[in-house]
Computed example of a mutant assay.
Amino acid sequence: MTVSLMDGLLEPVQARGRAALERLGLPTRRQESWRLSDLKRLGAVAQMELAQTPAERPMPEATAVRLVLDGIHDPLDGVTLPEGVTPVQATDLQQALGHTLDRCGCAGDWPVEFNHATATRILALRIRGSVPPLELVVNGGSGLVATRVLLLLEEKAELELLEVVLADGHAAHSHVLEAHLGQEAQLRHGLLASADGTASLLAHLTVEQEPRSAYALTSVVEGWAFGRVEPRVVQVDGQAQTTMKGLAVTSGEQQLATHTAVRFGGPEGELDQLQKCLAADRSHTIFNGAITVPREAQRTNAAQLSRNLLLSDRARVDTKPELEIVADDVRCAHGATVSQLQEDELFYLQSRGIAAADAAALLLQGACQEIVDQLPSAAQAWSPLQRVMKGLRS
């Protein structure tokens, strides 16, 4: 279902969010997770008025069931949901809303409370069985667009989900997603967040996994003047699989931060994570990847790799893998690299008659392709690779 403020359920949520923001104030550099962030840009987002009209921008032909979230209209209006996808009933929604945020330990984080205070609608869907692909397009106009999504995947449910977040001009998006995966459920989740270089993005993606479930996230984020994307996953009792592949691209004066957190709540959990960051001009990318393996999470197998490309001597990359391991029977590995385009590879291509600029573009395209190709098939209609390459050229 789509719950609006008029339904009464969101009024106490908004009130709690506003009270929390008054109590918290804006984050400061004394807080470790905000130490590197441009807080002036965050403050500008906090002062924005809610968008009053949706954006009018062309969209490609839908290759999946498409729902448009603009923070104003009902995304289910005029849409026939496929079999196996149903709105969450109000009584279930009251119990489920915020549960995954609590499990992931981020219900009181500033961006989440900001969303609580400003979101006027919630899209809540229940998934049963294997269903057709879904496409959620977050498409706001000028000003602040606050959107919130709740997905409940029942036991053995299977869903391929693509979220497309678009913005241009003086705009900002606050987006919170909660997804609960029942036992043996599978969620293939793609996030394509693209802007024109002036808009801002705050996105929290929280996922709660029951045993033998599988969650795969592929994120491609580019073109945001100020962006902060925070995927949080908790494997409730272990014995689940988590895959995270991310690409963050910045140019100009942009700053984009990716903060991931994965916590294993039981034995035999698995994680395969790769985060790529490309920074050009005077831009700044930040990656902080936290993995928590408590004593009860024996036989955990987790791997995290952060690979970064500096495309200018004025660009900046900060990367910080964090592993907190208490269990003594685990296989956990992490690594981080920061490099530039390889001179020998450029020389090889130029020796084959390829101009220097074209050779550099080919290498950049190859670096991005590895992640872009992992997006759900519906993403191809949005030309994700072309968006990334255009952002690097602008």
Rank of each mutant, 00 (worst) to 15 (best):
D328Y: 01
T285K: 01
S339I: 01
G289Q: 03
A357M: 09
A290F: 04
E296A: 15
V326I: 11
F347L: 12
S351K: 06
N288E: 12
A357D: 14
G353A: 03
T319W: 06
D328E: 10
L278A: 10
L341D: 05
I291F: 12
R352Q: 13
A357T: 11
F287P: 00
D281S: 09
V317C: 01
S339T: 09
Q298L: 10
V293S: 06
E324D: 15
Q350K: 12
H284D: 03
E296S: 11
T300H: 13
E324A: 10
R331K: 14
L341F: 09
A336W: 00
T292I: 15
A297T: 05
N288G: 13
V293K: 01
L311K: 06
V293T: 07
L323K: 02
P294E: 11
K320L: 14
S339Y: 01
C332T: 01
I354W: 01
R352A: 10
T319L: 10
A355P: 01
A356N: 04
T300M: 11
T337C: 09
R316F: 07
P294V: 09
A302F: 12
L311A: 08
A356H: 08
Q298C: 05
I325G: 02
L305G: 08
F287A: 14
D344H: 08
E343I: 02
A290W: 07
R295D: 14
A315V: 04
L309E: 11
Q275V: 14
L278G: 02
K320T: 07
V293D: 06
Q342Y: 02
R316E: 15
A315R: 00
L305E: 14
D313P: 13
Q340K: 11
A290P: 00
A297H: 11
V330F: 02
R299E: 15
R331P: 00
L346Q: 07
L305P: 01
F347E: 06
Y348E: 13
N301A: 15
D318N: 09
G289E: 10
Q275K: 00
R299G: 12
T285I: 12
E322M: 14
A280G: 02
D329C: 05
Y348L: 13
S339P: 02
I354A: 06
R352T: 06
S351D: 08
A357R: 11
R282F: 05
T292W: 11
E324H: 10
Q340N: 04
E322K: 06
L341P: 02
V326S: 05
A333Q: 07
G335R: 05
L346I: 15
I325Y: 04
A315K: 02
V330A: 05
A333N: 07
D329A: 09
L346E: 12
A355V: 02
D281G: 06
R307I: 07
D318E: 12
